[in-house]
């Protein structure tokens, strides 16, 4: 095996490892930009993973699996929305409860699907791949990888350049003012939360349909939390989420490769790195009040009550 092939292997594995983080974090980014903090990402990913797997096994169709995963994530998110947007429950507590609920629900629903194998999602190659020998592992990926890669610039455009994106950001920055201007704060937040649920569901489905095509309890193994950290790490910018996901994914993969090549790397330190990096970013942006105002949505996590 040549050095070039190994390098391509590392890059391909990095992109794969980054995909569930990327999908879930992009969804959460939109949610947070609308001023809602949903800590239930891990739970929504798990429910998406089991729903996607179950649908793919039952129908034999990967497309049905992907659709079911997105739908299941949306239902979970809707539940969160009703609790926090309509019933004005505390977002942090509700989000944590959603994760606990999703973990238990997915384990219960997945009981009959343990130990069933599934073919991985089909890969879609970049046209003209024949002209680029050796790059096949990198440029032939499944639909969810391509979706994640396309979603980052699409969301950047949506949030930065579109009117709807502007309204969404306005709702997140100052829901009182947005409300005064006649924007439907609750409706916008519902939309964002449900979108976040769909993306988290897809992130989970990537694990159960493509990365390790099987259902196993708690198979997200904390990726939902890394996705949440990633949003902060990226200071709420889609492009930086993409880079951050590659970075976090790449650290894991590089670490495994280094071990295989015989370097002794303390694994515990590396599993801390995503969180350390996030804390470092938080500290860096917190030093400067203007920086925080520029980045974190000002109404993040605050309950909106139109009468007040």
């Amino acid at each position: 095996m040549t050095g070039f092939e190994t390098l391509i292997g590392i890059l391909a594995a990095t992109i794969a490892a980054a995909t569930p983080l990327l999908l879930a974090a992009l969804g959460e980014l939109v949610v947070e930009r609308a001023g809602v903090l949903n800590l239930g990402v891990e739970g929504m990913m798990l429910v998406g993973a089991v729903a996607g797997f179950a649908a793919a096994v039952a129908t034999g169709s990967p497309a049905a699996g992907i659709a079911a995963a997105a739908l299941a994530g949306m239902v979970m998110a809707l539940l969160f929305g009703v609790m926090t947007i309509t019933l004005l429950a505390n977002q942090v507590a509700t989000g944590l409860a959603l994760t606990l609920f999703g973990t238990g629900l997915s384990a219960l629903a997945g009981r009959d699907f343990v130990g069933i194998p599934l073919n991985p999602l089909p890969r879609i190659a970049v046209p003209g791949l024949d002209l680029l020998p050796g790059l096949e592992p990198l440029l032939s990926q499944d639909v969810l990888v391509w979706l994640g890669l396309a979603m980052a610039p699409a969301l950047a455009l949506f949030l930065g350049r579109s009117r709807a994106g502007l309204v969404l950001r306005a709702v997140g920055e100052n829901h009182g003012a947005a409300h005064e201007l006649g924007h439907p704060v609750a409706a916008v937040r519902y939309g964002a939360v449900i979108f976040g649920g769909a993306m988290a569901g897809l992130g989970g489905a990537y694990l159960s349909l493509a990365y390790t095509p099987m259902w196993a309890e708690n198979m997200t193994a904390g990726r939902g939390w890394i996705a949440l950290a990633l949003v902060v790490f990226a200071t709420w910018r889609p492009g930086r989420v993409l880079v951050g996901a590659w970075l976090f994914g790449g650290i894991t993969i590089a670490h495994l490769h280094a071990q295989g090549m015989g370097f002794a790397v303390p694994a515990q330190f590396l599993s801390m790195l995503p969180y350390l990096a996030t804390i470092a970013v938080l500290v860096a942006i917190s030093r400067d009040a203007a920086q925080i105002r520029l980045n974190a949505p000002a109404c993040l996590g605050k309950v909106f009550h139109p009468e007040r």
């Binding site: 292997g9 198979m219 193994a221 295989g260």
Partner: peptide
């Protein structure tokens, strides 16, 4: 599962 799969792929690479 995710980490185990990634480790296997690294070794295969």
């Amino acid at each position: 599962p995710g980490k185990e799969a990634a480790a296997a792929k690294a070794l295969l690479d």
